[in-house]
């Protein structure tokens, strides 16, 4: 094939080797690379040098949004916009607002968490540069798949592939872009 490769891909079957490869590639200074696993592997994110997720902050914003919506809604509708005297009860009291404050906090957190997760994982998406590669498809079955993208500054079609092979990664090969 004459087209330029989009990246290099390789397969690992042992989880301990995966950890080792992750640390080596991290220390080698690669940036645009990833390891695809069938299930979350404990500590692999740290071994890859992935920074702490900001998802917790997004979720917390959802919680604040939920609770302020709840308080604002109950206060404004009950005590400002249309005061209805029902059994002489207060137009707004924090005590009776608690169930809805609570439920909307949960709802806000859940929605922000899921939307935030989708955003951070960049899903939904229709395309992945490795999607037609047979090795890549094994990552949802039983293989740990390591990829290094061609747009990484340290990428070199020959050296990067041999680096992976030397680390013990199997079936290392270059991936070329598909027709689209």
């Amino acid at each position: 094939m004459s087209t330029k490769p989009v990246g290099v891909i390789g397969e690992i079957t042992d989880v301990n080797l995966t950890m080792k490869v992750a640390e080596k590639l991290r220390d080698a200074g690669f940036r645009n690379w990833d390891i695809y696993t069938p299930y979350p592997v404990h500590g692999l994110d740290k071994a890859m040098g992935i920074k702490r997720s900001i998802l917790t902050y997004i979720s917390f914003a959802g919680l604040l949004g939920g609770i302020s919506t709840a308080l604002g809604l109950q206060f404004w509708t009950g005590a400002v916009d249309y005061k209805l005297n029902i059994g002489g009860k207060g137009f707004f009291d924090w005590q009776f607002s608690i169930p809805i404050d609570f439920e909307l906090s949960i709802l806000g957190t859940a929605i922000f968490t899921v939307v935030g997760l989708f955003h951070l994982c960049r899903i939904p998406t229709w395309y992945n540069r490795y999607q037609d590669d047979e090795s890549f498809k094994k990552a949802t079955d039983d293989v740990f798949v390591v990829t290094i993208d061609a747009d990484d500054d340290r990428f070199s079609a020959t050296e990067t592939a041999s680096l992976l092979t030397n680390l013990g990664v199997g079936n290392v090969h270059l991936v070329h872009a598909t027709a689209n």
């Binding site: 990833d34 957190t109 968490t113 994982c121 998406t125």
Partner: peptide
């Protein structure tokens, strides 16, 4: 499946999301 690949960068966020959803 929304284009899920099993990327560790995604699992990293995913596990936190799952934890938060379980927590709430």
């Amino acid at each position: 499946s929304l284009g899920w690949t099993g990327s560790t960068r995604s699992w990293h966020h995913y596990e936190i999301a799952y934890m938060i959803l379980a927590g709430i």
